[in-house]
Amino acid sequence: MKIKADRDVCIGAGNCVLAAENVFDQDDDAIVVVLVESPDDEDAESARNAVGSCPSGALSIEET
């Protein structure tokens, strides 16, 4: 899987950080930063959960 984040769409809600701290972070303005573009199996489920809980639609997953 490959995670894509549209930083122009992100509203800084922080749901992704709470769901998958190893995969996502926020910059000083709260906008999403992807720490791991292709999470391993251990983090894959929480990453999917994070994408599902994103309120702005900034996150998507490309299955590879």
Binding site: I11, A13, G14, N15, L18, A19, N49, G52, S53, P55, S56, G57
Partner: peptide
Amino acid sequence: AASHHVAFGHGVHHCLGAPLAR
């Protein structure tokens, strides 16, 4: 695991203070 609820709203108006409230 019910974190996909809409109690904080959804879309661009999703609660700004959600991390604080949580």
